[in-house]
């Protein structure tokens, strides 16, 4: 079995949000929706203060609360062990948004075709071309770039990471670079105590 996962080193991430924008354009998500985002914060007091960054997207839990609560089975596990939403089954109840402890999900509040980026203007051809990918009234989230990985490419956020602080690979293959890196860097998932068994690991977390 393949089980796609990811590793992010927050100790070297520059917080640049290249991944955010790569995801945004790769998936042409609706205005205001970001499947990938980088949360910024800080730690310490002046002059011993530092910034903190935390790239966040769906953690593709193997024991996913969102899948469990979804009334229609729209949220499900795919053949790669990742969590996906079948828009054709989603009734937009937003149970999964509440269930997700990582705030990974977003609802399509409006029809993308009717909300141009540039206020007061028509949609750009780019938006027109891609609006249909996001039906109104369903819940969405990171899809682990399944379209790209099918073609043998890395997810967009991984490929574009300007510091190469992201790794993608098969968690079920102990010889994969991903597994080795997770081991080597002592990476762990976020909020492991919740038992959600995420497929995304983080290195360099400071507690």
């Amino acid at each position: 079995m393949t089980h796609y996962g990811m590793l992010i080193d927050v100790g070297t991430c520059a917080g640049c949000n290249a991944c955010t924008m790569a995801c945004k354009y790769q998936n042409a998500t609706p205005h205001g929706t970001y499947w990938c985002k980088v949360l910024s914060g800080e730690r310490g007091t002046y002059p011993n203060a530092v910034q903190t960054v935390l790239p966040m997207s769906c953690q593709h839990c193997s024991n996913a609360p969102c899948v469990r609560v979804c009334p229609t089975g729209a949220s499900h596990y795919d053949e790669n062990g990742n969590v996906q939403v079948d828009y054709g089954k989603c009734i937009g109840c937003r149970m999964c948004m509440g269930a997700c402890p990582y705030d990974a999900r977003s609802f399509n509040w409006f029809d993308s075709a009717e909300h141009p980026y540039y206020e007061g203007f028509e949609q750009t051809p780019y938006e027109q071309m891609r609006a249909a990918e996001h039906p109104v009234g369903v819940v969405e989230k990171c899809v682990m770039c399944h379209g790209r990985t099918e073609e043998g490419k890395e997810p967009a956020c991984v490929q574009t990471c300007i510091t190469k602080s992201r790794w993608f690979g098969d968690l079920d293959d102990p010889t994969s670079e991903l597994c080795k890196k997770i081991e080597e860097m002592g990476a762990r998932p976020l909020k492991p105590e919740l038992g959600t068994k995420p497929s995304v690991y983080y290195a360099g977390l400071v507690d």
Binding site: C16, N17, A18, T20, M21, A22, K24, Y25, Y117, Y118, F121, E122, T124, P125, Y126, Q159, T160, C161, I162, K164
Partner: peptide, 16 residues
Amino acid sequence: TLCPRGKSAIMNVYNP
């Protein structure tokens, strides 16, 4: 790789 600015070439072309 491409930084977040590089990506906005698209929105720049279609800037109304």
